[in-house]
Every structure is written in structure tokens, then in C-alpha cells.
Amino acid sequence: MNNFLLTLTISILFGIGTFLILRRDMIKVIIGLSVLSHAVNLLIVSAGVFENGKVPIITGSGHGGEITGTIYNDNLAEGIFAPLVSAGSHVEFVDPLVQALVLTAIVISLATTAFILILAYRIYEEYGTTDIRELRRLWG
């Protein structure tokens, strides 16, 4: 699953984010942080994905990799919701732990983004600029 183009895309997102957080304009810096957090989330999730791995949702009543009921195939190319895997066969799930981590990270990045956005907005209200260098000059 994890192909060359996906890897390249994640790296490019990293590069763009890095370039943006080095800017002087606060809004651009915040956009850069958002791009970077997307890149990090994708990096972590893609590390847990492998060829023919299944969505980590247990269908049926089995535990472990053993399936006692039926499981829905999740390959988009072959169609969703078609019960293809028969009972008793062994199923490999993609890593659920990294997904849980990233789920938390997404929510926290919303909180921080909101906070620094309002911070930037208030700084503009108080000092009349969003330029970081200009701000340092004003503070002396």
C-alpha cells in the first residue's frame, strides 16, 4: 500500500511546512504548522499500513486475528460492504495503535491552532502588525 508517490507527497508536505514556519508573517507560520501537522499525522499512519491489511474493526464475535463471523472487505477497488472473507480465516489488521495516537493528535492540533490564531489576532489588535520582526522592534 505504502507506495513511492505517497512517501514523496509526505516529504514534500514536510518541506513546505518547514519553509512556512521560517516566515516572518505569523499567519503564514500558523498555516505552516497546520501543513506540518498533516504531514506528521500521515507519516505516522502510513507507517502502520501494509499490503492487504484490513481496517482494524472486528466484525463478528471472534477475538484475535481469528474471525468467527464474516468480515467485510475494505478494498475500495473491489467494492465496499461485500462479505468476502469467510468465517474462521485469519485476518491481518493494520496497526490500530498509530491510528489512536493520530486521532488524539488531530484534536490537539485543532486546540493549539485555535489558540495561536487568537493569539495572533490579539497581537495584531494590540500592536498593529503580524510581522514577527516588527513586533520584536516594537518591544525593544
Binding site: V35, L42, V45, K54, P56, Q99, L103
Partner: peptide
């Protein structure tokens, strides 16, 4: 970009994400 990432999560077998 954000909505694109959420689409991509589907390909990465992460419907919750």
C-alpha cells in the same frame, strides 16, 4: 489540503481518522 488528507486516511485504512 485538510479534506484531501481525510480522503487519504480512507486509503490508509483509517475510517475513524
Amino acid at each position: 489540503l485538510g479534506y484531501g488528507v481525510s480522503l487519504l486516511f480512507i486509503y490508509l485504512k483509517a475510517p475513524d481518522l
